[in-house]
Nucleic acid binder design. Structure first.
Length: 691
DNA sequence: ACCTTGTGAATTTTT
DNA sequence: TTCACAAGGT
């Protein structure tokens, strides 16, 4: 068994690094703890928290003070809570939860910031509508700007009074949309000439009106306009409804903490230790907040410790502070950990070359030799064959899995065997309109984020698969209270009813459930189905109408047939695709190969990794990887925007390659002759993949 | 030559 | 939502 023999003196060195952190904690010296992939960063964070409790816990308890530990995700919060055990002294949470908790009671101050924000937005909107000379904007508002002042006012009044009618017709084709408004808008010459521009004008008018109304109501101290609320479900502000979301919460927090010294003092006096996990992906405004707190502590001569834990090279999200930490919060003490506790030597060699900085990892194990890395080039159509080759070569099965990294969610869906479902959902008018919600609501592992219809489908498939699994305890299908009351013969009847549900597709299965529901007068069976579907009406036709309404809202009569057809395709898709999708959602794939996006593997580790790579990443990142390899040998000469891009790609490559414990293969599916040298500098010989 | 419409595709991820 | 592109109009 390799990777088991820890070298004694390295173990000792590792302890000394922890001691360095501990002594910084004791002396309230702010630190950045940088540790490469697989170094045991979270372990160090937890050790530090334990150390604070052990050495300073009594003092904290006495002064009623708490330690703040900030994580990047809810999943990380739960993991740390679990590993740490219960402690009253530590507040572990995401940054948003913590910030809101700290500022939410400053209602008056928040309201002032909110009013300022709305006034700023309002100013911008009015400028865009009337004066902004920027080409694109001038074009959109040209016709409106050409109206006389009186006509402008008339138009605004008219369209605000017709708001409902406007939205009702919003999605109609330009031709039909014009027909609806032609008559009533004839006096405003050319305003309907370009429907897209017209909608832009109207939306801007509405927004201005909303904001002005909101400011009036705040001034008049109307109900619901006295406090600002934070809404975490969607990342969209609703300023005129007094609702802010994630990004604005951070903006407001920075402002309020900047403006009110008393708040700074309260925060630092009740939380003398602040530890931030994954600092590299933390918004730089959060680092600014920390800097303000640290500076204020110094000014009033109170003590606070701020510790940033992370790795600049694993910064893969855009608004993360990354290596700019040093600019935004200067004079931090850097503590580096160079050990690798994850991978075999061959992998470590490669990832060291990718990061190419002062953290040149060495394995903590004496028996780390081995592992293998190979870089292949091939064609797009080679992907499947390449994966299958290693599936055999590495004796992959459901226990010894192969993890394959691809760039996009769509590719994950394709390889994982549910591309039809992905495509059908993406072609519904709801997800066309809310394109940004498709991936989250269809592919998230967090059920609370899954969309309404995907969630309903999920519940039905779960129900079916539990029903078919003999190991599922019967009580799973019942309310506990009902279950204990039932006698055997009643129970048996219900089970027979449940087992008589049949369908070769999801649609047929649901139809069967609902037919049995209509036929049966068994109240327990009906109760189970009620719990499962939670609908208003229980016929298959009603069910389909419900889906139509959700996935194709505000249908025009002529579009109904087309929508029904699309819905039918969704319901009649191959059931095996739904099973694959379901297993993907619950992250319990029964397959021996599991697919991920590069980004989605953050923090994970796998024995066998294949990475599928190509030049481009979407439309905005043409030549992402090719230009990275092209520039690799002259990395020190790149500057500005080019350097930012270079580092982004390097970080993503580092994160993905460093997931591997033992075997790593990369298949590059474009021609590499222009940048072969760069690849070879990192990966050595480039192999040609042949079938 | 420039404008308008319809269509299809779109990077990743968190809160 | 946003963009690019083809097709057709002015």
């Amino acid at each position: 068994m390799s990777l088991s023999d820890i070298t004694d003196n390295l173990k000792q060195e590792e302890r000394e690094i922890q001691n360095q952190i501990n002594s910084s904690i004791d002396s309230f010296e702010h630190i950045v703890f940088n540790a490469g992939a697989g170094a045991g960063k979270t372990y160090a964070l937890i050790e530090s928290l334990k150390y604070i409790i052990k050495t300073h816990g009594k003092k904290l308890l006495y002064h009623n003070q708490k330690i703040i530990c900030i994580t990047y995700t809810n999943v990380a919060t739960n993991e740390i809570k679990e590993r740490l055990g219960n402690s009253e002294l530590i507040k572990v949470s995401t940054i948003h939860e913590r910030l809101w908790d700290l500022i939410k009671d400053y209602k008056k101050e928040l309201l002032k910031i909110h009013v300022d924000n709305i006034k700023d937005q309002l100013k911008q909107l009015i400028f865009d509508l009337n004066n902004n000379p920027e080409d694109k904007i001038e074009k959109q508002f040209r016709v409106f700007r050409g109206l006389s002042d009186d006509l402008k006012d008339d138009f605004k009044k008219f369209i605000i009074s017709e708001k409902e009618f406007f939205y009702k017709n919003y999605d109609k084709s330009a031709k039909n949309f014009k027909m609806e408004f032609e008559e009533s808008l004839s006096q405003y010459k050319d305003i309907l000439k370009n429907v897209a521009n017209f909608k832009k004008v109207v939306n801007t008018v509405f927004k201005i009106d909303n904001y002005e109304n909101c400011l009036d109501k705040i001034k008049a101290k109307k109900n619901h306009y006295k406090i600002v609320k934070y809404e975490s479900k969607y990342n969209t502000d609703n300023l005129h409804r007094m609702i802010i979301s994630h990004d604005t919460l951070i903006d407001y927090s920075l402002k309020i903490i900047n403006d009110y010294d008393l708040l700074k003092q309260i925060v630092l006096d009740s939380h003398p230790y602040i530890l931030i996990d994954e600092y590299q992906d933390t918004n730089e405004k959060v680092v600014k907040i920390m800097k303000l707190i640290a500076d204020h502590a110094k000014k009033i001569q109170h003590k606070v410790f701020i510790g940033y834990f992370g790795d600049t090279v694993q910064n893969i999200y855009n608004d993360g502070v990354g290596s700019r930490i040093d600019e935004i919060h200067p004079n931090l003490k850097f503590i580096n950990k160079k050990f690798n506790r994850r991978s075999h030597q061959k992998i470590i060699d490669v990832i060291n070359k990718i990061r190419n900085d002062q953290i040149d990892q060495i394995s903590i194990y004496a028996d780390s030799t081995g592992g293998s890395v190979k870089f292949y080039t091939g064609k797009g159509e080679d992907k499947q064959g390449f994966i299958e080759k290693y599936e055999q070569k590495w004796n992959v099965d459901t226990k010894n899995k192969l993890h394959c990294l691809v760039l996009t969610n769509k590719l994950v869906a394709e390889f994982s065997g549910f591309i039809d479902i992905y495509n059908h959902f993406s072609s519904t008018s709801f997800y066309k309109k809310n394109y940004d919600r498709l991936n989250t609501e269809l592919l998230s592992n967090d059920l609370s984020k899954i969309g309404d219809v995907p969630n309903l489908f999920y519940r039905i498939i779960k129900f079916k698969s539990e029903l078919e699994n003999p190991k599922t305890p019967l009580i799973n299908f019942f309310d506990k209270k009902i279950y204990i009351k039932l006698i055997f013969s009643e129970l048996n009847k219900i089970i027979i009813l449940l087992k008589s549900i049949y369908g070769g597709t999801l649609g047929e299965y649901i139809e069967s459930i609902l037919k049995n529901y209509e036929k049966s007068d068994n109240e327990y069976f009906r109760h189970i189905i009620n719990q499962l579907l939670n609908l208003e009406r229980y016929s298959y036709q009603d069910f389909k109408n419900y889906l139509l309404d959700k996935l194709f809202p505000n249908l025009d009569t002529e579009e109904i047939d087309n929508a029904k057809e699309k819905l039918e395709e969704l319901l009649q898709a191959d059931f095996s695709q739904y099973i694959s999708w379901y297993e993907f959602i619950i992250d319990k794939q029964q397959t021996s190969i599991v697919y991920h996006t590069y980004h989605g593997t953050k923090g994970a580790e796998f024995d066998n990794v294949i990475i599928l790579m190509e030049n481009d990443f979407g439309v905005k990142n043409k030549a992402k990887f090719s230009s990275f390899f092209k520039n690799f040998k002259n990395a020190d000469t790149i500057k500005g925007e080019k350097l930012v891009k270079f580092n982004n790609t390097r970080n993503l490559l580092y994160v993905s390659c460093s997931r591997a414990i033992q075997n790593l293969r990369i298949l590059y599916i474009n021609d590499i002759s222009d940048f072969r040298e760069g690849i070879e500098k990192i990966f050595g010989k480039v192999y040609q993949y042949e079938i």
